[in-house]
Design a protein around this nucleic acid. Structure first.
Lengths: 256, 256
DNA sequence: ATCCTGGCCCGTAGGGCGTACGGGCCAGTG
DNA sequence: CACTGGCCCGTACGCCCTACGGGCCAGGAT
């Protein structure tokens, strides 16, 4: 199922790819039919529609009507392709709007990131450490600016942004994982529970796990009734922002 | 790199495996040399030491000195094996200690979960939706009990526990991802930045991303100096718990 | 006008993976 | 004593990534 792609290639090459550092050549046969952008776009489309599990170099090449190995003329390997896909996707975020107070800005950032991950679920499967593409840096800069000027230390600013982003990622991951399982099994939550709850009840009786049983039932009922994912997401987000507020208040004790 | 395993097998079979529902048979050839527990243990050892990317049915079978296909006598497939591994790993958590006030209890839970994920990094790569093993349910019950009796609704209790768990998972994921990249590249952060920062500086000048540049530099320096991962983890955790406190206080306005 | 060169494209092949299928083996039961 | 059903597993199929090397061809150099 899993793993990461190691990528392990030359970081200098990766950087030059991410920042599109390449003068158009003259030598060589006519116009190239392929280029990095087309490959990234095809791969992204495939990953969006069929999931990252279906993303293979063969499938990408097929989608482009080209031999598998042709991709390697433009991209060192699958790992670098994934990096390029992630940075390109982050390019969809608005990094210009810097209006409003910190809480409103962090809220907007959280919702925008969430929407992006929902659009491109595979992004959550790619490790982005040392992925220094232009769009990732612009995103980081934009997010940090939301908590700049609040008397936080630089390390605290970084932690705060990571805290919010971590919340977004973990909730989206949860949601997408559930959707994937539902898709794979061909049963939605209600069908599934109706079928297997009796079986589970025979194994784990309510007296052994009283709290889990009570809460699980209530949560199931709530989801079945008027379940609003945005509301659920907002609830946790406001808790996180309350925590940030406590920090911000403590750093600006006199003028608040 | 990624994906999940679909598993898609018969959930009833999975449940019976997770809860070890099987009377020892009599018919058949002598004593079986293999059993589910031995397979799960071997697979866990392999995943712990070499990463989930190295976990293959062949490798597990080799570690047990057995043919690959013999595993399928005890386990329907790789997906189910991963489920069994996860539930078994959660069995290491202490689910008895219910002493202390909610904040202290959530703090203990967060640290215990973090330690578990550090010990078994591959756990973060397995989707646990509808994974209803005995240890996972016991964990859920134990964690919910930490926020029981605080006048929270059941849905709020569930959200709160998820909030804390989500924080833990996202921070550990970040840390482990960074470690994996460092291992794969053979360079620690300091070496890496010393080598590639000049290259990056040529591409992204400081004036274009002023906040990212300032904060990135400060965070890098801080990590290089007296970096204490526990302290970093605690910082964010206390922010999360502050957010929970705001909720708890609002639900018990009169007697606090 | 010819040759060279270097980019592009990609077929082949090697070493992984998960697992379906079917068959050999043998202890206990009938 | 035959049978049966659990155990063990070799083989094979269809995927995956990618190293290697070769064919092709437009432009530059001579």
């Amino acid at each position: 199922m899993p793993s990461q792609h190691g990528k392990s290639g030359d970081p200098a090459r990766s950087l030059s790819l991410l920042w599109r550092t390449q003068e158009p050549t003259s030598r060589g046969r006519g116009k190239p039919g392929l280029n990095v952008d087309r490959i990234v776009a095809a791969a992204t489309g495939l990953a969006d529609s069929e999931g990252i599990a279906a993303l293979s170099m063969r499938r990408v090449a097929d989608a482009l009507g080209v031999g598998t190995m042709s991709l390697y003329t433009y991209v060192p390997g699958k790992g670098e392709l994934l990096d390029l896909m992630v940075d390109a996707a982050y390019g969809d975020l608005d990094t210009d709007d810097r209006s409003g107070a910190w809480r409103e800005r962090l809220r907007r950032i959280a919702f925008a990131n969430r929407a992006l991950y929902v659009r491109h679920p595979w992004m959550l499967q790619v490790v982005t450490t040392r992925l220094l593409g232009p769009n990732l840096i612009a995103k980081y800069d934009h997010e940090l600016s939301a908590v700049d000027g609040l008397n936080l230390s630089e390390v605290e600013m970084d932690s705060t942004v990571n805290l919010v982003n971590g919340y977004v990622e973990s909730t989206v991951r949860q949601t997408l994982g559930a959707e994937q399982v539902a898709r794979d099994s061909g049963m939605d939550d209600e069908q599934w529970w109706r079928t297997y709850d009796p079986l589970l009840a025979a194994l784990a009786d309510d007296t052994r796990f009283p709290t889990a049983s009570r809460v699980g039932t209530a949560v199931g009922r709530a989801h079945q009734a008027v379940y609003d994912p945005d509301h659920e997401f907002s609830f946790g987000l406001e808790r996180v922002l309350d925590g940030v507020r406590a920090l911000v208040d403590s750093r600006a004790p006199t003028d608040d």
